[in-house]
Write a protein that binds this DNA or RNA. Structure first.
Lengths: 252, 252
DNA sequence: CTGCCGCCTCCCGCTACGTGAGGGTCAAGC
DNA sequence: GCTTGACCCTCACGTAGCGGGAGGCGGCAG
């Protein structure tokens, strides 16, 4: 009972190229060749191919299939467990992605009226190496970022406008304070720093003092943030940075 | 405000190689080069990178990201929807795989005592091109296969033994019938064919007359099945084939 | 001037094949 | 005996998204 590549391919629903490939990598080499060099598969080859395809349908990589099949005494159960974990892990990641997409779609609906600055505030950011942790929190789909994204997703048009208004109000007051010449580590500045922290906590995510000082450092270290604040009032980035630090220290 | 690759890489949590890659494929080319050929990224480059990373986290391929970003008037919503579908589709497939693995693990627990023939009966099979449909049903994780696998997964040791016993009993009786010289389209043969069909339905999956005749053809067309029956009794494959067809016709 | 770090440009490697190119082989029909 | 057409063979490049290394400049501190 010998079969040609084509026959085997049709029977097992794989392409001829696939069989060539399995032969190349030594996963399934036909037990014989015709004088002309044609591959000739026999029944044991077919059995092996059947197993290969079964494992492939379970998502195993070819190399691991080879391991399993070439260790006839070995137990495939550990492999199965590993694969199970791997797949469930992938599912988790994909689900996160789907959730993120849904958020993005929600956000899109309201996005029209958002200024770039607001989007900048809501979505990810750049941050120097020193704040890798904070970056992880915001980028990596971890707690604070997710929390923020979840809340943002539920924002109504009015929420956005109120958020914006509060922000602008705060910006006006701190601008006035800088203009007045009040020290950055004075009580008024610290009060506005605290207000800033609570603003973030209320609208986006729980902003601890630790996170807040991290943000503060980012405001001076990252030119994009710096630019945002400098545009409101030159010198504001550094001023706010100092105020936030002073505030955090005084509360500790 | 110009940044080197290394600075950008650290800030955005990507590798230098990644930035090189984006440059190579034209997804993100630094807006300037130093006289020595060093890449120099400016703030707009960073913004673009930020967007690129955001879309990447949503699972978009780089090429599509380029499309989205290079069409500033375009609406990303359709892309988001497409991606959402794509991801949910992948999740579905992965879930199927996980389910299949769980079945395989269950089966493994009982597998020790299964003869190769039984496994051959339970798990996939080979079938010539003409029965692609049936193959799909059994291989593709579709209804009959899944149904079978589900039931098999719940088989106890005793179930296996009873199944085996019933099978052997049936095999003994049809062997005797062939020996007796009774015609394959006679009532006794048709009775045993029907019994065969109900055996499958009871133990594995709903076996319609259509599926049954498909199986019957496979028994003579596929040498592996043929061998299985020929080992029980030479000539049985063809005999059973005829009996099943006769039975199916008489019931139609 | 020397060291060292960072930057550059190739270029191979990974998965599991798809898709030809260019050329023999086999059974059938004339 | 010769042609045709289906089938087979062996290269060998392409895929997505980088990882990693070789070999060689550039820039800056001591």
């Amino acid at each position: 009972m010998a079969y040609t590549v084509g026959q085997v391919a049709r029977a097992a629903h794989v392409t001829v190229r696939t069989l060539h490939h399995y032969d190349e990598i030594g996963l399934l080499s036909p037990s014989e060749r015709s004088p002309a060099g044609y591959r000739r598969y026999d029944d044991t080859d077919l059995e092996r191919l059947q197993l290969i395809r079964a494992y492939r349908e379970l998502g195993f990589p070819l190399e691991e299939i080879a391991e399993i099949l070439d260790d006839p005494g070995g137990d495939p159960l550990p492999h199965l467990r590993r694969q199970h974990e791997l797949l469930t892990g992938r599912i988790g990641k994909l689900r996160d992605m789907v959730a993120a997409i849904e958020l993005a779609m929600e956000a899109r609906k309201l996005d029209i009226q958002l200024t770039p600055e607001e989007r900048f505030e809501v979505f990810g950011d750049f941050d120097p190496d020193e704040h890798a942790e904070e970056a992880e929190r915001r980028w990596g789909g971890t707690e604070a970022y997710r929390q923020s994204a979840e809340r943002v997703a539920r924002f109504s048009k009015e929420d956005w406008l109120r958020n914006k208004a509060e922000n602008e109000d705060w910006a006006r007051r701190i601008t006035a304070l800088v203009d007045s010449g009040a020290p950055a580590d004075g009580p008024e500045a610290m009060g506005l720093a605290e207000e800033h922290r609570q603003l973030i906590s209320r609208w986006f995510y729980d902003c601890s003092y630790e996170i807040h000082t991290g943000l503060a450092d980012m405001y001076v270290a990252d030119p994009r943030f710096t630019a945002y604040f400098e545009k409101i009032r030159p010198g504001l980035a550094a001023y706010l940075n100092e105020a936030i630090h002073a505030n955090a220290i005084s509360r500790a």
